[in-house]
Every structure is written in structure tokens, then in C-alpha cells.
Amino acid sequence: MVVKQGIAILVACCLNATFAGAQTIVVKVLERPDPTTVTVPDMAFKPGRSDLRGFDDYFYFHKSGVSYERAFTDMDQCRIQSEMAQLAPPIPRFIPLGGEPAKEPGFHVPVYSQYGVAGAIIGEIFIEAATEDLTAATGRKCMAYKGYHRYGTTRAIYKQIDSGTDGEKLARKAVIASGPPPQAEALEP
């Protein structure tokens, strides 16, 4: 991930990427679904070697004694905090402390950059991938602060958990986080 972020930032620099040209977007709190309407996959699996390698990408959280409602709120707050994180953010000149959470535009490569449309597309791909990694890393740290433990799963199970709308994904993860304790050992946060 470090290399990917480094490449993305270097690409952004070379393509003269900027933060300008996009508007501030308010990040709304998600509506919490009724947990009785949420179905989760069977979480049991026997990890193979390839599964172990994928635990940085495919994982879920659990916290003993937490309610579904609290888990959903915690995860939603961490989602908001993560969405607001940017690659190499500039120092802001104004922060609406006390106002609604809002995210700033990240790096954007002008379509007609000095390397043309192809350069812009490649740059955006690198930047998007690195930003996704940053969002995931921020979310993991946030959840660790809130006392959740992280557990690995398979790509197939994760894809079932992480399907549907943002609210449905979060609800599924909150049901799992507040459900029976996993048998596996927790991973590093």
C-alpha cells in the first residue's frame, strides 16, 4: 500500500494534479436498517494460504457486548472519518468545527493534462486505488480506537458482506460485529 500511495502521489505531481475544481460534499449519516431485515452469510471457513494473504483486504470487525445499534453508529462514524481523509492534504484555511461533516475534493488530474487524456486516465486510476487504501487504513484505525477487533475472512464471504447499498453493507457488518464472537484469532488492528 505504501508503494501504491507513493506512486499515486508522484503521478499526481507529474500530471499537475490539483485539489481545485470540485465542490465540498456533505457526508451524511446513514439510515440504520432494522436488524431483523438484515441477512448475513455463514462466516465459517477454513483459511487457505491465499486467504491469509488477503486478510489486509478482506476482514470484518467484532466487539464483545456491543449492540447492533451502537456498532452501526460506530461504523458509520468511522466511514465518515475515512471518507474525509485525503492523500497528502494541504493545510486548510477554514474548518467549520461544529458544522456538518464534509469532504473536500481529492486530487484531480485535468483531462487535458500535459500527458493527454491517456495520462489523465492512468493518473486517476493510481490516485483512486491509493485513496481506497487510505480510506481502508483510516477506517481500521478508527475502529481500533473504538475497541473493535479485526478478523480475516475470504474474498467470497467478504463480497457477500460488502454488497448492496452503503446502508445495507454497514448493517451487515454491524450485525456481524455485534454477533457471536469469532473462533479465529484477532488480526493486528
Binding site: V27, Q77, I80, Q81, S82, M84, A85, Q86, P89, P92, I95, P96, L97, G98, E100, P101, A102, K103, E104, L134, A137, T138, K141, C142, Y145
Partner: peptide, 12 residues
């Protein structure tokens, strides 16, 4: 805690 207006990696 407050929203991550600074946009950096979160910490405390």
C-alpha cells in the same frame, strides 16, 4: 472527537 475536517490520517 469531531469530523476529520483536516483531511489527514486520523489519530488522537
Amino acid at each position: 472527537a469531531f469530523p476529520n475536517f483536516a483531511g489527514a490520517m486520523l489519530s488522537r
